[in-house]
Design a protein around this nucleic acid. Structure first.
Lengths: 222, 222
DNA sequence: CGACAGCGTAGGGAAACCGTCAAGATGCGA
DNA sequence: TCGCATCTTGACGGTTTCCCTACGCTGTCG
């Protein structure tokens, strides 16, 4: 079932879309500002995000940036502003499509079908990754052996696992998992990397998959 | 280089797009009806197709179907008809995006960037460089053969590798790696160049890739 | 032949960094 | 309101990395 996150500050629109999408057997989550949108995206893991640019707290383009920091979920932008520059900014920030209000609900549905159709083969690619004796499923958010991870642990692990073999800088990890204001709190990294190792590594004291690169960052070695 | 196939029956539009895209270093192919569009797509293998729905011979939606029969190349549909049903039909036929004429050329370019960005996540080209028997990946910060480098070693090596064959002055290396106050500490250079050679050169005593230019600086010879 | 300048190598102390244990603070559901 | 899971914060010992000093080598030039 396709999961849709709708972000808009008009209750009417939210309601209309929720009803229409639910009637077509989409699973729907709602958010009415940028902050809750980012939180919802992390928890709900939608297959597509419908995002209004005119939000009360954060600029919509910033929300796109925030999402693109850690996910490639398709984003369809809504906006009342018909100006072309808005479209260009949103698309270049990483949005996949742009619809100007007022729009026909059928057209939005068609665009949702279009972006999810393109993204769906991506979904079938292996999201199961082995770490030692454990198997991690990023899509289902499960780890074999009855291991459970907290939300923060998931975000951190996902960031590493999505770039196998690549060095992820401390700065990148901190800003993408905790936020832009935490770029220097390397303490958190040590704390949570230790927890991940305890839960995933065969011998947590001698990690072979979650590798430290002193002074630079961490790396997931498959 | 991204390859774009433009299908439209208006010579003016074809010309305008061709010029704009060529100026931005796209490779462009043109077609003015559905038949040649399908032929061109087969021969030219574009990375994205810009397709006008109002063609003289075949209905645009049929062209979409024809393309989707064998390729998943992103398709951006153009149309003068603003009616929503057109959009829905085209999107459901397999198009990826829809732009209504008249459109801002910048907007179309942004949409081209959006669909190509999505279609080719492989564009994150691995910057791999060979040094003797070792392979260095600057993006992933890895060296083949289990070799590990420290942060300072990486900074120094990156500076050299980003300018293959070029002489890098001691002054430049010192200021870029250690800071403006270290411009005369040539000592550090010898120290770290020796370490890099030990880790990367087949015979550290006889360097063939990390070359000393006495009195001047160092050079990376590919 | 000797002085000198530039380069390569080795090793030790200091500082920065990392892993770990432990405890306080916070938020959420019962 | 309480209890639990999670997130923050603090403290300490071990390790890596960096900075710095010392010394041998080579080629040039007087």
């Amino acid at each position: 079932m396709t999961r849709v996150l709708i972000v808009d500050d008009e209750p009417q629109l939210l309601r209309a879309l929720r009803i229409n999408l639910a009637a077509r057997h989409y699973e729907v989550a709602l958010a009415d500002d940028g902050g809750s949108a980012l939180r919802q995206a992390a928890q709900f893991h939608p297959d597509v995000v419908v995002l209004d640019l005119g939000l009360p707290d954060i600029d919509g383009v910033e929300v796109v940036h925030g999402l693109r920091g850690w996910t490639s979920v398709p984003i369809i932008v809504l906006s009342g502003r018909a100006g072309s520059q808005d479209k260009i900014d949103a698309l270049d920030a990483g949005a996949d499509d742009y619809v100007t209000k007022p729009f026909d609900i059928e057209e939005l549905l068609a665009r949702i079908r279009a972006v999810t159709r393109r993204a769906s083969p991506h979904e079938t690619q292996p999201v199961q990754i082995r770490i030692g004796e454990r198997t991690v499923d990023l899509a289902a958010k499960t780890v074999s052996g009855g291991v459970r991870l907290t939300p923060t642990e998931w975000r951190l692990l996902e960031l590493l696992l999505r770039h196998p073999g690549r060095l992820i800088s401390q700065r990148q990890m901190l800003t993408e998992v905790w936020g832009a204001g935490y770029a220097k709190e390397t303490h958190y990294l040590r704390q949570y990397m230790a927890q991940l190792r305890r839960k995933l590594e065969p011998d947590p004291a001698r990690p072979v998959h979650l590798i430290t690169e002193p002074g630079m960052g961490y790396r997931f070695a498959p």
